[in-house]
């Protein structure tokens, strides 16, 4: 396998949620969007006000998905990835957290109180903010653009290599796994029988996959070494990403907001 895989693996085969559109949000510097994501998470968890998380979703995250013109993809990702998990957490916590006083409903061992209901909603909404802020970030930021920008700001280029090449290798590995599963099934491997049979199926599936991919490691190492991977000289960039004044103002504004929340939290508790 060759490392300079531009031709072999076009963009769409790379693993990412990124949707290519023209929008203000897409044009922002990746670091600005990353700051926004972490600011949203920190504010949701630090704010002393109960409704902050819900407000952030209604007033910031959901409108921003329209600004970024990814509202449909955002809604779909939130529905598919987030709604089941947060819904489960909300229901389980409402019923099973200890310490509620005001009983609303009781059936056998199920006991719903207004305190645990409030607590469950708070946790679920915070997780919703955390994950959906990341979804919005990933929908509007290309992984390579993020890595280029962070490398320019001092992230070791080896780390950038690891992240970008992992995003390429995972889909390859998955298709390889599918091939191996199909091949072993055609030779009569039982992948749907009893528990012991399924345990035994693990080795003939995992073995070829792992050994096959580990053998490639050495070839890859030689290939990127030959392209100056470990060279200590400063590297140049193929694409220049703009970092405007607006970006800087937004970033400092967000930092200020987080500090303000932290202050409010300390003040009120």
């Amino acid at each position: 396998m060759v490392v300079s895989s531009g031709k072999m693996h076009p963009m769409h085969e790379r693993l990412s949620l990124y949707i290519h559109r023209e929008s203000v949000l897409h044009r922002l510097n990746p670091l600005t969007k990353l700051t926004l994501t972490f600011a949203l998470i920190l504010i949701a968890y630090l704010s002393p006000w109960y409704w902050t998380g819900s407000m952030l979703i209604a007033v910031v995250i959901a409108p921003l998905s329209f600004v970024g013109r990814v509202q449909r993809e955002y809604a779909w990702a939130a529905l598919r990835l987030l709604a089941p998990a947060t819904g489960f957490i909300f229901v389980m916590q409402s019923f099973f957290l200890p310490g509620g006083q005001t009983e609303l409903f009781r059936f056998a061992f199920l006991r719903l109180t207004s305190e645990t209901l409030a607590q469950g909603y708070l946790t679920a909404i915070r997780i919703f903010v955390m994950v959906s802020a990341f979804i919005l970030f990933l929908l509007t930021t290309h992984p390579s653009a993020l890595m280029t920008d962070l490398t320019r700001r001092g992230l070791p280029s080896q780390l950038a290599y690891v992240i970008v090449s992992t995003l390429q290798i995972i889909p390859q590995m998955e298709s390889k796994a599918q091939t191996i599963i199909a091949a072993q099934r055609s030779r009569g491997l039982d992948t749907e029988g009893t528990f012991l049979k399924r345990v035994r199926a693990l080795v003939p599936l995992v073995g070829p996959l792992v050994f096959g991919s580990l053998v490639e490691v050495e070839e890859r190492a030689i290939a990127i070494e030959a392209r100056g991977f470990t060279s200590p000289r400063p590297k140049t960039f193929l694409h220049e990403l703009p970092d405007t004044r607006t970006d800087k103002i937004i970033r400092w504004g967000l930092v200020f907001l987080v500090l303000l929340t932290l202050g409010a939290n300390a003040w009120l508790s």
Binding site: Y161, V162, S165, T166, I169, I170, Q172, M173, S213, L214, E216, V217, R220, A221, I224
Partner: peptide, 8 residues
């Protein structure tokens, strides 16, 4: 080079 493969 091993790290990306290990993650995969």
């Amino acid at each position: 080079v091993l790290i990306p493969v290990a993650i995969a």
